[in-house]
Computed example of a mutant assay.
Amino acid sequence: MVLCAVECNVWQKATKNYEKAVQLNWNSPQALNNWGLALQELSAIVPAREKQKIVRTAISKFRAAIQLQFDFHRAIYNLGTVLYGLAEDISRSGGPMNAKEVSPDELYSQSAIYIAAAHALKPNYSVYTSALKLVRSMLPLPYLKVGYLTAPPVGNPVAPHSDWKRSEFVLNHEVLQQINGVEQRHFLPSLSPKSRDEISRSSIRIEVPNIISVSACADLTLPPGAGLCIDTINGPVSWLLSLGNLWTDGLMPSD
């Protein structure tokens, strides 16, 4: 009991120190991530009645860190783990207290998405690989996101506006892929590598690890609408957003 109180006091001091660090350097994703980690550790040793509030505060710090640096894999992974822990806690307590709360299944799914995103950014990290094996079955497979974007013809990003077409795209933790028809979407996961390569040559495909940054953009070369610019190691790609922030959320995790 005494040891627990001492440990609790240590982590409480740590959270206050990290809070001060963020106040001094509010745009530091590392400081926010450290604050979230300290809160996560504190949540593991406080009384049960205090735990969820601290956990949700930790979640907000990890998300704030990711908003400052969308490819900050440590914060992305930590967010996945804290969401997983929250799902476990809610499951043990018998489910959400009210209809407004997120269900354990949804939390598990969110956790899996963030862990998969961290793994996509750092596929050689053994910790991420092990965690992904644990949560892979919880991913909303075969795709994390499915929706429509208005895009130029393949290989012609400066095509006339009249040539830009609205088409379906799918996103998983490996690739953002343009899909030509519902049947292709359903059968794509089971296609051979050769068949996938053939599809890739005739459609837009971006490997997630090749993405450098994602941002909203407004450019006279784009048709009217809300623009989304994905900067890759092969150069920038711009599309129109057709469904609000659906793709921004998928490619750049946020609240």
Rank of each mutant, 00 (worst) to 15 (best):
I179Q: 02
L171S: 02
L141I: 08
N172A: 06
N172E: 06
K194W: 08
S137H: 12
P153I: 10
L139K: 09
K122F: 04
I179D: 03
K194H: 10
P123C: 02
I199K: 04
N172H: 06
H161F: 13
K145A: 11
A131V: 04
L176N: 00
L149T: 02
L176P: 02
F169C: 06
F187M: 11
D163G: 00
S200V: 07
K122T: 11
V127M: 12
A151W: 05
L141E: 14
N172M: 06
Q178G: 10
S192R: 06
R201W: 01
I199T: 10
L171Y: 02
F187Y: 08
P193S: 08
R136Q: 14
H173Q: 10
N180A: 09
Q178N: 08
P153K: 07
T150Q: 07
L191N: 01
K122Q: 14
D197H: 13
Y143F: 05
Y125A: 12
H161Y: 11
S137K: 15
M138N: 12
T150E: 08
V175G: 02
G155S: 05
N172F: 00
V182Q: 15
V182W: 05
P123W: 00
A151H: 09
Q184L: 14
L191Q: 11
P157I: 03
P160H: 01
L191D: 03
I199Y: 11
P193D: 01
Y148W: 13
Q184H: 10
K165R: 15
M138D: 15
S167Y: 03
S126K: 15
E168W: 04
L134M: 14
L144M: 10
R166T: 14
V154L: 11
Q177G: 00
P153G: 07
V154F: 05
W164M: 04
V182K: 15
P142W: 06
V175R: 13
K194V: 14
Q178T: 09
I199R: 05
V135F: 03
V154H: 05
F187N: 12
